[in-house]
Computed example of a mutant assay.
Amino acid sequence: MTSNIILFVAAYLLGSIPSGVWIGRIFFHKDIRKYGSGNTGTTNTFRVLGQKAGISVFVIDLLKGTLATCLPYIFGSSINPLWFGLAAILGHTFPIFASFKGGKAVATSGGLLLGYNPAFFFFSLALYLIILYITSTVSLTSMLSAIIITLSTLILPYIAPGILPAHDWLLTLIALGLTIFICLRHKENVGRIKSGTESTIGFGRKKKKQARVK
């Protein structure tokens, strides 16, 4: 019992590592929370600090979710690894090391999938990149991907058992909860998407169309 509590605390603390804040302060002498959207995650890091910093933050945020999910495998706990990944996501979103103001949970949620089911993670990553190519909008892609990934937990056991061999109802419930949470965290983005003022990235079909128009 005590060892499991320690592992849950460790998972939360792993998730609480505010990579965007620390990288901004150490290498750029900037507090990323004072620039752009004020978010500490990957997207705002790309916009404020550049590509190298953005990639670094993405990798760290992904891997801290993966490592947290793998804790019960490493230390022999019988508790479902998904709960530890969820603790890391909670830490990422409400980090004790950054005044409980964190990211929007997308990369760390991906890390949970990587630690729990690598095949399903790479399926989800491919899905994310396809939607990003179509929309050129990170926020919209994150929300749409979360919705489709949740539906995929129900469909894939029938059409692609090599990815999900059986229905995993805990995975579905957690995916559904994270989808709702991610959409709520993107509430301001939804408003900008509706008004046509949401930022886009220099990748995808939409950007190619804009370049041809110019």
Rank of each mutant, 00 (worst) to 15 (best):
L184Y: 12
G177H: 05
R192S: 07
R192W: 10
I155H: 03
H167Y: 12
L176Q: 03
L171I: 08
N189Q: 08
R192E: 02
I155Y: 08
H167C: 11
G196H: 09
G162T: 12
S195H: 15
A160W: 03
I193R: 07
K194H: 13
P161W: 14
G196V: 06
A166M: 09
A175W: 12
P157N: 04
L178R: 10
I182M: 04
I155M: 06
L173N: 08
N189M: 07
A175Q: 06
I193Y: 14
K194T: 15
A160C: 02
P161T: 09
T179M: 11
P157A: 05
F181Y: 14
P165M: 06
L156K: 06
A166G: 01
T179S: 14
G177F: 04
L156M: 06
G162D: 11
G196I: 04
L178I: 10
L154W: 14
V190D: 03
A160H: 04
A175K: 09
I174C: 09
H167P: 09
R185I: 10
G196S: 04
I174L: 15
H186R: 07
L154R: 05
R185K: 15
L164P: 00
P157W: 03
E188M: 07
L178K: 07
L184P: 02
E188L: 06
I182Q: 00
